[in-house]
């Protein structure tokens, strides 16, 4: 990603040069100083990714909307915590979104429900992604990248990232030892990172 390469040129601990970074980063820096108009612009950049991820995880439009509101309020409240030397603005926002969505789904559904639901869905994970392939270039790239993973890696990531399972739950759902679940999540993500060229 070109945006990402550009970000990496920022030396940690230094103020980023003015006008550099992705649009989202510049906006987030302004938001950190209480700029409501910049927040409005940032909303337009991040709301769809936030809502889409929340919806995928909680699988209920009303709940996804509530989660999205919490996340976007977090973005406003916590913008000053964003540190461009530690990652992109989009990754920072999506980290908040994932955490909120996963918290919500864990509160709403018992472990059994999630595991059963996950168990029922896991074999279709490929199809689930396939349906969305045409949605965007990103989705197509993700789909191709997921295709390079082993099925255990792919399912482990699907269960943890999109279903909100903890790693012991992933291990139970896949019938693999705990250590294996952790490792598959990690090496699966590393593989995705390398295939996607995310850095």
């Amino acid at each position: 990603m070109r945006e990402h390469e550009r970000r990496l040129r920022t030396v940690p601990g230094e103020h980023p040069p003015p006008g550099t970074g992705t649009p989202a980063e510049r906006l987030l820096r302004l938001v950190a100083h209480g700029d409501a108009e910049a927040f409005e612009d940032l909303y337009d950049v991040v709301a769809a990714p936030v809502y889409g991820l929340a919806l995928r995880i909680v699988r209920n439009p009303g709940m996804a909307e509530e989660v999205s509101q919490e996340v976007l309020m977090d973005v406003w409240r916590l913008a000053a915590r964003f540190d461009p030397s530690r990652g992109s603005a989009m990754a920072w926002v999506m980290t908040l979104a994932h955490r909120r969505a996963v918290d919500r789904v864990r509160r709403e559904e018992s472990q059994t429900e999630r595991t059963q639901r996950a168990g029922a869905l896991a074999p279709e994970a490929g199809d689930d992604v396939a349906q969305k392939v045409e949605r965007s270039l990103d989705a197509a790239r993700v789909h191709r990248a997921l295709g390079t993973l082993t099925s255990v890696q792919r399912e482990a990531i699907d269960l943890a990232f999109f279903r909100g399972l903890t790693h012991p739950e992933v291990s139970a759902a896949l019938g693999v030892p705990l250590g294996t679940a952790k490792t598959r999540i990690r090496d699966g993500l590393i593989k995705l990172r390398d295939v996607l060229g995310v850095e």
């Binding site: 769809a48 990714p49 809502y51 991820l53 990754a91 989705a139 990232f161 993500l189």
Partner: peptide
């Protein structure tokens, strides 16, 4: 940091306009 970017990429691919 790099895995967060990767996860964000996965998440972004799910983008859908909110109400």
């Amino acid at each position: 940091a790099s895995l967060r970017e990767t996860a964000a990429f996965l998440g972004r691919a799910e983008a859908q306009s909110p109400p």
